[in-house]
């Protein structure tokens, strides 16, 4: 059986500097995988190559058995790749529910001008019900009508998750979800994500600095350093690897497993 996401031999350089050096990453359906590494290791570059924001210099990205290397960003999203952002990207002047509504609407085909003109572009009750269902699942039911300018950072991140969920993704890419959150908020976020994942059954690829979060959340991890894969395997074992510690701390570890 082939993996859900198969990235093979991804290579990318900027102005002669190698950012990714023949990176292979697989994510199977329904599993939770971490991608860790120190600052500037190439995690975000890899992310962008999978999403189509950057084109890799060489290598292939297959999703669900299909080569998506040539697709544009929104086309890849429609294949079933959802994402959240490290620096929150929400739609100004919209309420929480509207974020989910537009995602739901986009999934069901594109807007037609004549439908809008006849007033059929307004939110339908069944759409609102589907959005509210996801909002309840994420614990955002109480703020459904709130403009996003009034949310906390943690809630904003959940809105991003909810928005991605409305597109019914097979794979959710989380870009540093703990960034800017305190310890408790991070734990809450992890719990919520786990709950939603068990209900919806999508796979997660998590890019994260926070080693603690990754250790508690993922089964399997890849470690990048200077664009090269330096370790992979079960997360706990990977984190014990002296090479990984050295990459993180910049000091040679004296002993390891």
């Amino acid at each position: 059986m082939t993996a859900l996401l198969e990235a093979r031999g991804i290579r990318k350089s900027f102005a002669g500097v190698m950012a990714l050096h023949f990176v292979d990453i697989d994510v199977d359906a329904g599993e939770t995988v971490g991608l860790i590494g120190p600052n500037g290791a190439g995690k975000t570059t890899f992310f962008n190559c999978v999403l189509g924001i950057l084109r890799s210099d060489s290598g292939v990205v297959r999703f669900d058995g299909r080569d998506i290397s040539g697709l544009r960003v929104h086309e890849r999203a429609r294949c079933g790749i959802g994402r959240t952002f490290q620096r929150i990207e929400l739609f100004a002047e919209s309420t929480v529910r509207e974020h989910l509504l537009i995602a739901e609407r986009t999934r069901h085909g594109t807007g037609r001008l004549w439908k809008d003109l006849l007033g059929m572009g307004r939110p339908h009750n069944d759409e609102i019900a589907r959005c509210d269902e996801v909002l309840e699942l994420l614990g955002l039911g109480a703020v459904a009508e709130a403009p996003i300018e009034h949310l906390s950072l943690g809630q904003g991140r959940l809105v991003e998750v909810g928005r991605a969920l409305m597109t019914d993704p097979k794979l959710l890419l989380l870009d540093e979800p703990s960034s800017g959150l305190d310890r408790k908020e991070t734990a809450d976020l992890a719990a919520t994500l786990r709950k939603v994942q068990s209900e919806k059954g999508f796979a997660i690829l998590l890019v994260e600095h926070d080693v603690e979060f990754v250790a508690g959340f993922t089964e399997r991890s890849y470690v990048l350093d200077f664009g090269t894969m330096i370790a992979q395997g079960p997360t706990r074992e990977v984190l014990r690897d002296p090479i990984v510690r050295e990459a993180y701390l910049g000091v040679p570890a004296t002993e390891g497993t």
Binding site: R72, H74, A77, F85, L90, I102, T106
Partner: peptide, 27 residues
């Protein structure tokens, strides 16, 4: 009608954040 309909919402999403709009499949 356009402002309150799908196209208006889509445009507002793009205006709010183009990358995020693309991430949910909007062209």
């Amino acid at each position: 009608q356009i402002r309150g309909g799908t196209i208006g919402r889509t445009l507002r999403a793009i205006r709010g954040s183009e990358v995020a709009a693309q991430s949910i499949g909007i062209s």
